[in-house]
Design a protein around this nucleic acid. Structure first.
Length: 194
DNA sequence: GATTGGATCGCCT
DNA sequence: GGCGATCCAATCG
């Protein structure tokens, strides 16, 4: 019954708080091909109005609609016409915000990940948002999916000490570039950019 | 209606 | 270090 999933309340805080909170948690996806999972080692917070780098800085569109919904849902979008980015919505209903999952330390379903990625090296499987989306089979059909569901959820993984968390600026954006909203586990081999 | 740039990656030099 | 792949929506006109 209780699989130890993180509950709804886990996601109902500001994105920067949830971004730190997600580090060390295990992200699990049950797909038709099998189960894959990984320990979250790198995240970025996208806060909403006031954060010009966020998709939800402006009005609601079909693409960003999920960010305007309830917390604890997958927000998936296509970037550069090629790659998917996987986010988890956060905060109360009035605040459209999310956490981008940027890197995982692969745990379950390693062979399935290798097959999907067409790479063998462990550190090449999930060391970036586009990579982990491919390895975990995250695509548009998961947009809006609840993180409290059976097929997609987060659960406790490894213990993380606050001192292990490195805080830096976000990657690949052109607006609000100075905000310290990227978080990763110090020294972890799977982080996308050290 | 057309243009442009983006929360990326992998291959090329 | 540079560039092509290729979709969506914001910005221009």
């Amino acid at each position: 019954m209780d699989k130890g999933n993180m509950p709804q309340e886990f996601y109902c805080s500001p994105a920067d708080v949830v971004a730190r909170r997600l580090l060390g948690k295990e992200l699990v996806h049950h797909s038709a091909q099998g189960v894959t999972s990984g320990i979250i080692v790198e995240t970025e917070a996208y806060m909403g109005p006031g954060d010009d780098a966020s998709h939800s800085a402006k009005s609601k569109t079909r693409r960003n609609a999920t960010m305007f919904g309830s917390a604890g849902r997958a927000y998936v979008y296509l970037i550069y016409g090629i790659h998917y980015c996987f986010n988890v919505t956060t905060d109360c209903d009035e605040v459209p915000s999310a956490v981008l999952i940027r890197a995982l330390q692969p745990k379950l379903g390693l062979d399935l990940m290798r097959q999907r990625r067409r790479k063998d090296n462990l550190t090449q499987l999930c060391s970036g948002p586009g990579k982990l989306a491919q390895a975990m089979a995250f695509s548009m059909d998961l947009d809006g999916c609840s993180m409290l569901s059976d097929q997609l959820f987060a659960r406790p993984g490894i213990a993380v000490n606050e001192r292990e968390i490195v805080i830096t600026t976000r990657v690949g954006i052109s607006k609000a570039i100075a905000l310290p909203l990227r978080f990763y586990l110090s020294g972890n081999a799977h982080v996308s950019v050290k």
